[in-house]
Structures are given as structure tokens and as C-alpha cells.
């Protein structure tokens, strides 16, 4: 592997100070499952690497006064897969964690790393968009909060400045009659990358859809919400026919490319199928 200097901060403050002192040739290291392959193949050539594994705050999962959940950016995919609170209240996020890599990779790969790597196919992004999560970012000027829906600015690009650190993801409470689901299509069941990924979250009130969220991955440069489809569901009694219409409407925001994983046409087909399936499961879970 190419040579670099390794820095080992023990707190968020120390990490932010270190980042501010070091300049642009610096990369943050969380789980390493994206960064190390890029260091090994020469895609990235940082002069310095800051290891986040010594910062305990980044691995915390905390309920905020029974309202919502704060998940540290270095919480692993495997922890999200198995955590009882995440499974109970934010099942789509647990489902996305369970789909990343192999168990050997999931024990290393982190939520924040998945977001900051900013691949259009990032599995943990659609559930966070569908759950209205916010990214809590710390830099030299203090803390700021950014909706995950606007966190991504392009392929492998985010709103993070070079001197900023993604510290936590804040998930609002979902309420009792809310259900979600994340599905993706991959040729191989394990250790593959989504051809298309879709997360849906439905919240019901008096048998009517009070809130709908649908988020798509790998159909545009950034993960994005299908707001037209969401609006078609809200205020309505959700039927199979309405779900089918929402699945058609979800296509409006998809601008897929053709690549080695699938053609644009196949991706558009998958958006409809996976939107229909995730909405159907979300509805069943919200009604349960």
C-alpha cells in the first residue's frame, strides 16, 4: 500500500482540530471497507489518514428522550442489522445494514462511511432518506444539521467541507402506525452492489396514509426521494391499485444509466417492482 502518515485522535474535538491543521491531503478512516481498497489500488493517495476508531462517541446509539434515535457515524452495518431498537423502530435501516457485503465486511463497514463514500448505490442511504434523517456535522465553526436528502451532491460528493466530520445521524420518531422496508436487486444475493435499491416508509392515521416516503438508490447520481409518488399516497387509503400508481410515479425522478450492472430500461423496471414491493410490505408493517 502507498505510504501515509496515520493520526489517532480520541475525541471528536481532537479529530476536528487535527483535520483543520492538516489540509487537503487528508482522509478520514472509519471501517475502511471502501477506503482501504481505494488506497491499495491507488485511486486515493492521501498524505495523511485520520483513524476514527479511537473516538468512542462515534459508535454510540442513543434514544433521545424516547423521541427518535441518534446513531453515531461509526456504528457498523452489523450493529444496525442486529440492534433491537433499530430493528423495532427503523426496520428498513436494519434491513439495509444486513445487505452490505459479508459478515466480515459488515463488522467493519460503518453507517457514516457508507454515506460519505457517496456511491449512488449506497444501501444505507435510501432508508435514511425515507426516515427523514438528519446528518449532524461538526467542523471548526461548530455543529450543523443537514437533511440526509440534501447530503449528497454528486457521485462520490457530499456537502461535507474538507475540515468537517459526520458525527451522527438523527432519526425522528416514527410513531406507532408506521412501517418501512428496504429492498434491492442484485444478481448475487451476498457481496454485491445494488442494481437498484428502494426504501419505503408509510405512516397511517385512521386507516389513511398520513405520511409516505419513497427513496431510490442507483438510479441517479445521488440517492433521491420520489416525491410525486409520495404525494399520490398521502391523504389516501392505500390500496394495491394506488401502490401500483405510486410505483409508476416513482419513475418520474429516476434518471438511470446503463452500465455493467444493468441497463437503464432494466433499472426503470426495477424501480416499479421494488417500489411496489416495499410499499406493500411497509403497509403491512404499518397496519400490524
Amino acid at each position: 500500500m502507498r505510504r501515509f502518515e496515520l493520526l489517532l485522535p480520541q475525541s471528536v474535538d481532537e479529530c476536528v482540530r487535527t483535520l483543520a491543521q492538516q489540509g487537503p491531503e487528508t482522509k478520514l478512516l472509519a471501517g475502511g471497507t471502501d477506503l482501504l481498497p481505494q488506497l491499495k489500488n491507488g485511486l486515493l493517495k492521501p498524505a495523511r489518514v485520520i483513524d476514527l476508531s479511537g473516538v468512542a462517541q462515534l459508535r454510540a446509539i442513543e434514544s433521545a428522550n424516547g423521541q427518535g434515535l441518534r446513531i453515531g457515524s461509526a456504528v457498523t452495518a452489523r450493529t444496525l442489522e442486529l440492534d433491537r431498537t433499530v430493528q423495532g423502530r427503523y426496520l428498513s435501516l436494519a434491513e439495509s445494514g444486513a445487505l452490505v457485503g459479508s459478515v466480515q465486511v459488515r463488522n467493519l463497514a460503518t453507517l457514516g462511511g457508507n454515506l460519505c463514500n457517496a456511491a449512488p448505490s449506497a444501501d444505507m442511504a435510501p432508508p435514511l432518506l425515507a426516515l427523514d434523517a438528519e446528518a449532524i456535522i461538526v467542523g471548526p465553526k461548530g455543529e450543523r444539521r443537514v437533511p440526509v436528502a440534501t447530503f449528497f451532491t454528486g457521485v462520490r460528493k457530499t456537502v461535507l467541507a474538507p475540515d468537517e466530520l459526520l458525527v451522527e445521524l438523527a432519526l425522528p420518531a416514527t410513531g406507532p402506525n408506521s412501517g418501512g422496508n428496504y429492498l434491492r436487486h442484485t444478481p448475487r444475493r451476498e457481496l454485491d452492489i445494488a442494481v437498484v435499491g428502494v426504501a419505503s416508509q408509510l405512516t397511517l392515521a385512521n386507516g389513511v396514509c398520513a405520511k409516505a416516503r419513497i427513496a431510490l438508490a442507483a438510479v441517479a447520481p445521488v440517492p433521491l426521494r420520489a416525491t410525486g409518488a409520495e404525494r399520490a399516497l398521502e391523504g389516501q387509503r392505500v390500496t394495491p391499485e394506488l401502490i401500483a400508481r405510486a410505483a409508476d410515479l416513482a419513475l418520474e425522478v429516476a434518471r438511470p444509466i446503463s452500465d455493467q450492472r444493468g441497463s437503464a430500461d432494466f433499472r426503470r423496471h426495477l424501480v416499479r417492482v421494488l417500489t411496489r414491493r416495499t410499499l406493500t410490505t411497509a403497509l403491512a408493517r404499518a397496519s400490524a
Binding site: 475502511g32 482501504l36 481498497p37 483513524d51 466480515q104 465486511v105 467493519l108
Partner: peptide
Amino acid sequence: IASCLLLAMQ
């Protein structure tokens, strides 16, 4: 874990 993806110092 995959020990090829963890830096030794981690």
C-alpha cells in the same frame, strides 16, 4: 472481520 481491510493500528 476481513483483516486485510483493517489497519494494524486500528
